[in-house]
Design a protein around this nucleic acid. Sequence first.
DNA 1: GCGAATAGTTAGTCAGGCTAAGTTAGTATG
DNA 2: CATACTAACTTAGCCTGACTAACTATTCGC
Lengths: 141, 141
Amino acid sequence: MTTDDTQALAERLSRELRHLVMLLRRTTAGQPITTQQYGVLGSLEGGGRRMTELAEEHGVQLPTMTVQINRLEDAGLVARAADPADARVRTVELTEEGRARLHAVREARIAYLSRQLGSLTPEERAAIDVALPALAKLGRS
Amino acid sequence: MTTDDTQALAERLSRELRHLVMLLRRTTAGQPITTQQYGVLGSLEGGGRRMTELAEEHGVQLPTMTVQINRLEDAGLVARAADPADARVRTVELTEEGRARLHAVREARIAYLSRQLGSLTPEERAAIDVALPALAKLGRS
DNA sequence: GCGAATAGTTAGTCAGGCTAAGTTAGTATG
DNA sequence: CATACTAACTTAGCCTGACTAACTATTCGC
């Protein structure tokens, strides 16, 4: 693939990114939590995390994450706790309700995307299957 | 591809969508206009459009587009005009400055994505190349 | 010509992002 | 050990971008 080809691919990808954002918005439309909240709950699935970690993982500043966690805490989906080793640190973990909500939303999202994928040809699904790891690498460098 | 495969693909796609949104955010970070403004300017490149068209094309309600266009107009990047055939309709078109801004931002975005794509292997770029049309179909049905 | 429909705008609310500044706790140094 | 610095969060204030409800102005149908 030549430099020109890469440039042309970048142009097409640039045009498609907005479309994918709209797809994501529809994926979450009408659900009880927002896309961002869903993402944060997902980060907590493996156990408690500290605020700084969450902010970094989601590419936002710490104050932004504070507000997010405040809302999730108000909604009863997460709980803050203290770190016994360092009193400055606050850890965040899923409540039972948060875990249930996460799973419900995940199933709804996957069902929606499955329906969308189902309207493609098998070849198109295979193409997405092959491309996903490459897309995952983009922007991580 | 079986139903189970489609389900598994939907799960992976679901996980990647958030990542792609973060990629898009980085693509526009530090640029003189926001992602949404860039998208609207892009819609105007082929000539004037009416408010309703713009709102539909971008998947937002009319009041949202009104605010967007207000800001772009304040910034001197677009101009509103009347439709001679129907006095209710307002058309929006690019100013010279808007067109220049659009092209500058487009180049910067493409340059950023080209760099990102450049760090992939040729096979990975080819995979994305093949998958883009399929991704474009998703959510349009 | 009058009622209904259409095109936009205005007003009010909320989520989600930022920076700057404040608070509290740990760390390092003389 | 006191003082200064750094680190981890939170608070406050601002902006964009989304929504619905309500308003204005125009067109269309009969």
